[in-house]
Design a protein around this nucleic acid. Structure first.
Length: 934
RNA sequence: GCUCAGAUGGUGGAACUGGUAGACACGCAGGACUUAAAAUCCUGUUCCCGUAAACGGAGUGCGGGUUCGAUUCCCGCUCUGAGUACCA
């Protein structure tokens, strides 16, 4: 029979499901290998052709590892809490759980069609109570923990309480809020429970804090920093504003240094690590306290100094002004009566500017003088305090010491407002711009005059410490992550409130189920949707937390749940975690670089600190699959003399001769840029009687690479491809498209080449009448050579994730075997095993036809490479003259270099090229090349 | 601006440690089969010169360098894509 992909694929997909072929063993003598895909959010649009790219790669790898004798864990699930289902609920009233369920069904159907070898018995859904019970449980562990800097790990809060009880707050080195109390053991014991809890909250790894948040009014929720792009929400593109709110936060900053260091131990793409490094943003410098000059005015100030962070404390004698952020808490009290109008006008002006304007405006200098001064702590010099929006409230202390000679922004500011610029290094050139050099010797710098950079820095820091005006400090750009959304469709936070303070619900009450509500909108009083739930109180009367967890909560630990997905006693058993340990290969998009991948590493480190998991890093090796871009096709409408569009369309090659305007056309009715005119006429009524100006009898469309989107008619659905060519072709074609990590436009041109290849492979097993038949004769040398070439090639390619090159090699192998008229069982059976990770359905069918037991292919041993079959006794040496290849000459490989030289020089054709001359030099690389210098 | 990645035929791409540039596939052209079309198969296909072949010349974004030999290594530049952005 001819290659009937539809029947074959259906048959084997059913077989795999019924027999649970890919169920991973929990206990095994085989080595483990964990291949993980980033699980999808099941959107209503279904899977598009870009999604499976990574899944196909990981599936090939997983199948390959099984053939290589590994016990492979290759699971799939759904990140099923999220905004779209809730937005849909707001519009239609349909419960998000129903929408989600429907979407998951679509995803599952689509995934099954592609023939993935997932172990579905371990499926997880973050929105299922069995799952989010453990997300809530991990939240509770975070609430019950603090970060001990001395031990450099997260620890149980009980330890902290015990310390307070015996020693008070002395000797505690913790990552905590700024305003902690200092107390003795007896004072602690004298605190009311209320006071104690209030104090402990300042240490907990998840805590409540009033902070400035990214508030998105359109979505009615707070967004994390990584969910905001250029002042707009990443999802939906709505404007985002800054707002003060009391929010749950995660003390991820406690782990900043470990998150940074850990990057050096994992095999991730360098750009991705770089993104995390930038996000963490470590900078080493010093914090300096500038005493406020209270001599003149505003004696009412309750703070004595302004603290700044600087990476160039050596430039402290070049400070000619201080700049604080307009939002800085001291602005109001520092402003003198005379400057009040100026300052207020400036603040009003910055408030109006959106973040986007502020960036576009980066070149314009703006600011206002508060009227107050600080004193340089080292020489007592009076320094004016300004406000300007180039100083960000959220970074460092929201205040900078301005050194115009060394910093370009400070320089522009000084020039604009006529402030002094002081040279501090002898070789500094500050005529037209700031010079940030660290070279040369200091001048105008008091006790560091004449010193060099390193020495000067150390000297200044020592002096500041001595007079208690500053110290060396490491600063991180990363902020604590906000952990609450004013939304319905997320995990409820397992917390209730008593006397204004949060308490965990009892563990036995987990999971805290999401209550039913009448509408998925905030309450009339502006509370989150959970405020609508009736009788939703803890133990009869206590109010629950009404915000839910953010989208990243459920995805920050899901790889552990796959290890032991049905466990109802623990998030995963100790046994399972000790066996599977961590993810060996993780494939997904780079868009999660600073979100999911950072939070996951954070939670993992925390779980490791509590000794709940065994590895410090969760994902040993990570690969980013490239983005699949859209590839739009265009037709060109002829414009008449009056500038009106006509119903005549001009083929792309001729548009220069006419006046035309481009129109997007559905890529599904275009093949190799040739428009299917019949389908086009049916596509939309307006084109039913369109006329065409053709070239060579065809209408050729224009092409452009754009985002894949419905409005551009360039979305390709994998279902359509599978319908036409089958899943095996889709799998191989997606790999054939190019290197996995490269972004590329989706382009169906060329898919037939892959389909033809599979058919050719099928034909090796069949005669001209499509009857199955293989021979049991001993394989020939040439056949064995082809086979062992491909064994080696696939091993090498898969190990380095170069899937595109092995597809080419498969084609070469099949072309060779076809030329050899090979129908040898021994050869073909090994071919089936090798190809099975790429094209599993056709291989299962052939495996079965070859007389093997159904379902044994997935665990068959990968053929062993034997180098002997590749040994050649001759090599066709390229003979080049001055590096240019001229001819090939076959020479026995048994000859040594001297003999090769002699053979080459004795050759008549070589002599013809040499034209009587003697080569100056003769380079012979055995088995590679001969080069003559003439 | 900064950081990272990349640039190879008409197209997607290959060439792994410096050693025959363009594998494999698409497209295109020609041919076979067919009444015809589709499907299938065969041949050719980097560019230039030449009717064609032999042959010759150029050629991996641009300019230089190292080397017997460079798509690969080094220096400078251009362009494209991604990330990031007043980070003190």
């Amino acid at each position: 029979m001819d290659y009937q992909f539809k029947e074959i694929e259906q048959k084997w997909q059913q077989f795999w499901a019924q027999n649970q072929t890919f169920k991973a063993e929990d206990k095994s003598s085989k080595p483990k290998y964990y291949v993980l895909d980033m699980f999808p959010y099941p959107s209503g649009a279904g899977l598009h052709v870009g999604h499976p790219l990574g899944y196909i790669a990981s599936d090939i790898f997983a199948r390959y590892k099984r053939l290589k004798g590994f016990n492979v864990l290759h699971p799939m699930g759904y990140d099923s809490f999220g905004l779209p289902a809730e937005q849909y609920a707001i519009q239609t009233g349909q419960h998000p759980a129903i929408t989600t369920e429907d979407n998951i069904a679509t995803y599952r159907r689509q995934l099954d069609q592609i023939g993935f070898s997932f172990d579905w018995s371990r499926e997880v859904r973050t929105s299922s109570p069995d799952y989010y019970k453990w997300t809530q449980w991990i939240f509770m562990q975070l609430f019950n923990s603090w970060y001990n800097k001395d031990a450099d790990k997260g620890q149980s809060i009980d330890k902290l309480v015990a310390h307070f009880e015996s020693n008070g707050s002395a000797g505690i080195n913790a990552v905590c809020d700024d305003e902690i109390l200092s107390f003795t053991a007896s004072e602690w014991k004298a605190f009311s429970n209320q006071q104690q809890q209030d104090e402990l909250l300042k240490y907990r790894l998840t805590y409540l804090r009033e902070s400035t948040v990214n508030w998105c009014p359109a979505l009615g929720t707070v967004l994390a920093n990584d969910e905001v792009k250029d002042g707009f929400s990443e999802r939906g593109g709505y404007p985002v504003e800054q707002k003060k709110m009391t929010q749950w936060s995660m003390r991820i900053t406690a782990y900043a240094e470990r998150l940074l260091q850990g990057l050096d131990t994992i095999d991730w793409p360098e750009p991705l690590k770089e993104m995390q490094r930038n996000w963490i943003g470590k900078s080493t410098g010093a914090s300096v306290k500038f005493p406020i000059d209270k001599s003149g005015h505003n004696a009412a100030l309750d703070t004595d100094f302004i603290e700044v962070f600087t990476t160039r404390v050596d430039t402290i004698f070049g400070v000619t002004f201080l700049v604080i952020a307009p939002e800085h808490e001291l602005v109001a009290s520092l402003t003198t009566a005379g400057q009040k109008a100026d300052i207020e006008a400036y603040i009003a002006q910055t408030k109006k500017k959106s973040e986007l304007d502020r960036m576009a405006d980066a070149k314009t200098v703006s600011g206002a003088f508060t009227g107050s001064y600080v004193l340089n702590p080292l020489n007592g010099q009076q320094i004016p305090i300004w406000i300007a929006d180039y100083v960000l409230a959220g970074y460092g202390t929201g205040a900078v010491m301005a050194v115009p000679s060394g910093d370009q922004r400070d320089f522009l500011f000084a020039k604009h407002f006529n402030l002094p610029v002081v040279q501090i290094l002898d070789i500094q050139n500050i005529e037209t711009e700031a010079d940030p050099t660290k070279e040369g010797a200091y001048v105008n710098s008091d006790f560091i005059n004449g010193l060099a950079y390193k020495e000067a820095t150390a000297t200044v820091v020592a002096k500041l410490e001595e007079i208690n005006a500053g110290k060396a400090k490491v600063n991180f750009r990363m902020r604590d992550a906000i952990f609450g959304r004013q939304r319905y469709w997320g995990e409820p936070v397992p917390v209730y409130f008593k006397d204004g303070l949060p308490y965990l619900i009892d563990e036995s009450h987990l999971p805290l189920l999401l209550p039913e509500i009448d509408k998925y909108l905030p309450t009339e009083t502006g509370e989150p949707p959970l405020g609508r739930a009736e009788d939703w109180k803890y133990e009869g009367g206590l109010a629950y937390e009404l915000s839910t967890m953010p989208g990243w909560a459920g995805s920050s630990w899901y790889w552990y749940r796959y290890m032991d997905a049905q466990n109802d006693k623990e998030f995963a058993s100790r046994e399972a975690i000790e066996y599977w340990k961590d993810v060996d290969l993780y494939i997904g998009g780079s868009e999660h670089a600073t979100g999911h991948l950072l939070y996951s590493r954070f939670w993992n480190k925390f779980l490791k600190d509590l000794d709940l998991v065994v590895e410090e890093e969760p994902f040993k090796k990570l690969i980013n699959q490239g983005m699949i871009q859209g590839r739009s096709n265009f037709v060109y409408r002829l414009i008449d003399e009056e500038g009106r569009g006509t119903n005549t369309l001009v083929s792309h090659g001729l548009i220069k001769q006419y006046k035309t305007s481009p129109i997007h056309v559905d890529v599904n009715i275009v093949e190799n840029e040739v428009l299917n005119i019949e389908k086009f006429k049916q596509w939309r009524p307006e084109f039913a009687d369109a006329e065409f100006i053709l070239e060579g009898g065809k209408y050729i469309c224009g092409v452009e690479v754009e985002k894949m989107s419905k409005s551009k008619f360039n979305v390709v659905n994998p279902d359509d491809i599978i319908g036409r060519f089958g899943a095996d072709t889709l799998r191989m074609y997606e790999m054939f498209l190019g290197p996995l990590e490269q972004s590329k436009p989706w382009n169906t041109n060329g898919i037939e080449g892959v389909f033809k290849f599979l058919r050719k492979f099928w034909r090796l097993f069949h005669n001209d009448a499509w009857e199955f038949g293989v021979s049991d004769a001993a394989p020939s040398k040439a056949e064995l050579k082809s086979l062992h070439k491909i064994i080696k090639k696939v091993e090498e390619d898969v190990e380095r994730f170069s899937f595109n090159t092995s597809v080419s090699s498969f084609m070469i192998a099949v072309n060779e075997l076809t030329d050899l008229k090979c129908n040898n069982r021994a050869i073909l059976q090994d071919m089936v095993i090798i190809l099975s990770s790429y094209a599993p359905h056709i291989c299962e069918e052939l495996w079965s036809l070859l007389g093997n037991a159904d379902g044994t292919l997935s665990y068959a041993p990968f053929p062993k490479f034997n180098a002997e079959y590749l040994v050649e006794d001759e090599f066709a040496y390229p003979i080049s003259i001055n590096g240019k290849m001229k001819m090939n000459l076959s020479i026995s490989l048994s000859l040594d270099v001297k003999e090769i030289e002699a053979t080459v020089l004795a050759n008549a054709d070589v002599q013809k090229y040499l034209d009587g001359k003697t080569p100056k030099k003769l380079i012979v690389v055995k088995g590679r090349i001969v080069n003559m210098v003439v």
